[in-house]
Design a protein around this nucleic acid. Sequence first.
DNA 1: TTTAGTGCAAAGGCTTTGCACACCG
DNA 2: CGGTGTGCAAAGCCTTTGCACTAAA
Lengths: 150, 150
Amino acid sequence: MIADQIRAAFQESSQRTTRPRRLIEERLIELADSGADFTIDDLWQDLRQVEARLGRATVYRAVEMLFGAGLLERIEFADSTHHYRVCGGTHHHHLTCTQCHRVVEVDICLPIDQFTSIGKQTDFAIEGHSITFFGRCPACRTHPQHHHYH
Amino acid sequence: MIADQIRAAFQESSQRTTRPRRLIEERLIELADSGADFTIDDLWQDLRQVEARLGRATVYRAVEMLFGAGLLERIEFADSTHHYRVCGGTHHHHLTCTQCHRVVEVDICLPIDQFTSIGKQTDFAIEGHSITFFGRCPACRTHPQHHHYH
DNA sequence: TTTAGTGCAAAGGCTTTGCACACCG
DNA sequence: CGGTGTGCAAAGCCTTTGCACTAAA
């Protein structure tokens, strides 16, 4: 259960269950359920609705920790902006809309023998990989004037 | 020939053959030959050796233009830094060292039917894709204390 | 001579850091 | 109470922009 994992990650990295962390945890559980991707600023704005004085740095610190713990994944866009998304646990990759930045999961991957083959060819110790597809989503193909809704 | 392509791109996008552009062109040809990747700052520092007053913004503008023209490729790292590299023309992907940021080309790709399959499943118009492998290069496996040489 | 392109410095985003204070245990 | 985690503001990076000036044609 993702809620437990998030709570466990906070507990492992720190000693105190504070209000900001509880709020972050709650919001991330919602985001996990909806599968939505978000920027750090999105998350901060959401939390500020509930707790006006919650600091931006607190959100940055929590996201960094959870990303490090492998509970969030980071999606890089061609323009160097990036979004986060709560990990679903399954291995997958992303398809992002070049126009509105919507992100869709795809469960396509490389054949396993490609990894061993690369390791042998390059003598690198392969630790991970990332595949991103770029394209235009159905909505943006129909309404080319829209930008960045999600 | 990449030299001609770079020259052509400059000519197409502008009216004047200036000294800064000639220097950028020369340096990029060297970088194309060596196959090395570089940051914008690397490039600027190199050019400043030759022309001390060359402005940073000029380098940014040139790189942006050449990237847009498809003559440079951008390599994103997990920590959101990014490097550039002169395109070799062949379709390929990258393997980057998580420790020293060295970049190696790999010519592995997805089977073609995966692309059409994704297009059908998601109803996106697929425009491109990017595969990045992460790992530790032979040198960094041997000398774990080194960082960011290239 | 004309004006595109440049250099410089300032301004912009996003992210990190330093520090006094709040508040959890 | 003691000290971790927070909020705030400042500082840091990297990148873009505005503008007066340089130099290509």
